[in-house]
Design a binder for these strands. Sequence first.
DNA 1: CGTTCGATGCACT
DNA 2: GTGCATCGAACGT
Length: 199
Amino acid sequence: MLSREFYRRPTLKVARDLLGKTLVHRTPEGTTRGIIVEVEAYIGEDDAACHAAPGPTRRNAPMYGEPGHAYVYLNYGIHSLMNIVTEPPGSPAAVLVRALEPIEGVRLMRQRRQVRGAPARPDHELCRGPGNLTRALGITLEENGADLLGRRLYIEDAGRRVEKCAWSPRVGIRVGTDRLWRCYALDSRAVSGRRWLKS
DNA sequence: CGTTCGATGCACT
DNA sequence: GTGCATCGAACGT
């Protein structure tokens, strides 16, 4: 399990180092596990796309708190999006988890992702996209504020190193698009959206 | 392939 | 009342 000190560092370093790590969620239904292959950094009140941009509010409170906790919020009324709080307390910043490669509990992931009447999805799509991976792992608003040094929701070093990664603009935002704060593994099929290479 | 568009809940002003 | 750090079905080409 990753230490508090791992998270209490500059957010871009944490983001890069999270690639290849394993996100684990243990529930009564079973354990699901996947390798992180795509993340985005949201850093400080000066970052217009960061939820801390308006200053402290009830919603973004976890971003101002202790690093190594989950910040989960509902977006578009439908999707729970999971962030990992970074930096020392008082420096609001977090890393959004955007895609995983499924490792354990694939059957449970399929079950959770399955829509009645729709064809089953290939495994590499089960955790592709921030809203999809939380659904596959069973992460909901109940996990907001959860300590990642606890036993339910945590991140492990699986000893895998993502050698090749790239930085691109963040996906799906209308402001702060000038910052290249999306980091993803170049060789993973599970990465969401379009690949982006500097031209 | 591509693009459009509705679903849906809640924090924020 | 407004606006989302999204997703996938339903189209058009």
